[in-house]
Amino acid sequence: MSKTSVHTTSLHTNGNGTGTTETKRLEVLKTYKIYIGGQFPRTESGRYYIPVNNEGKKLANVCLSSRKDFRNAVVAARAAFGGWSGRAAFNRSQILYRMAEMLEGRRMQFIDELMQQDASRAAAEKEVDLAVDRLIYYAGWCDKYQQLFSSVNPVASSHFNFSVPEPTGVVSIIAPQQDSLLGLISVISPVIAGGNTCVVLASESKPLCAVTFAEVLNSSDLPGGVVNILTGKPSELASWFVDHMDVNATIYCEKDTDIQRMMREKSALNLKRVFFYDQTDWTAAESQSPYFIFDTQEIKTTWHPVENIAGAGGGY
């Protein structure tokens, strides 16, 4: 599997440099698509861009997603929300665990792609390992955060009263530009562990792992539409991510203060919850916690009367 050291200046990624006299096998290049509703279309706009690595090597013809792609993805995410949020928490946990299994199985492929995108082998290995572990971490939380964030409230009247977290709905996410795999997984996992669905824009300069990760999702029993992955430019799409009326929350992971201001302004349209994860080192221990799940949860409080006909002390 050690095929990663040979790079040419073309789009070839898997070239083998051996054999000078035999007919050289032409390698099959991968088309990097986007992922909407469990399917892999190219962008409806027909546009593409070519990210390059530090050596100037072209990575791929990557979809330059449009506003329309985003809107399609929101439709898919909304359609998937009822089913996904209605699944047993245990089942969501199993699916996140399955995602980790599938990611582990493609470990070398992700290391390869990270290295094409300028990571050293050691850094790439570390990132993939952490990404798998992060999925396992949130797989474990799926059926536990509810107990952490719920309460039974001792109201003074004769009522049974309790508060539980519920997913907020459809979340739009602009993933971290660095840590293109680990960052992506770190922001998606708590959102879907909590029963939300999402539309995520991959790292603009390092988009390869996000698309390959979509293939992991597609083979992990994750229902189509729960995670939708677009590639393209935050500068072009950020405003659509935050002003769509059927999106409930937006997560933005960069420090660009102009975009942050714009996002908070536009979020007022339908009072989206907005989160800026701009201080986070995604390799650090603090970059995973149930409080990330809590961000995209709503607290619902339910009241019901308690019958009191026996009078004081009559219940026991």
Partner: peptide
């Protein structure tokens, strides 16, 4: 989809009971 749901009762409030909305009813409890 609402932050406070009353079953067989309505308009009950208590300091120990979180109150606040979903969607355009706001955020925070």
């Amino acid at each position: 989809r609402a932050g406070v749901v009353w079953a067989n009762t309505f308009n009950k409030f208590d300091p120990s009971s979180p109150f606040g909305g979903y969607k355009e009813s706001g955020f925070g409890r």
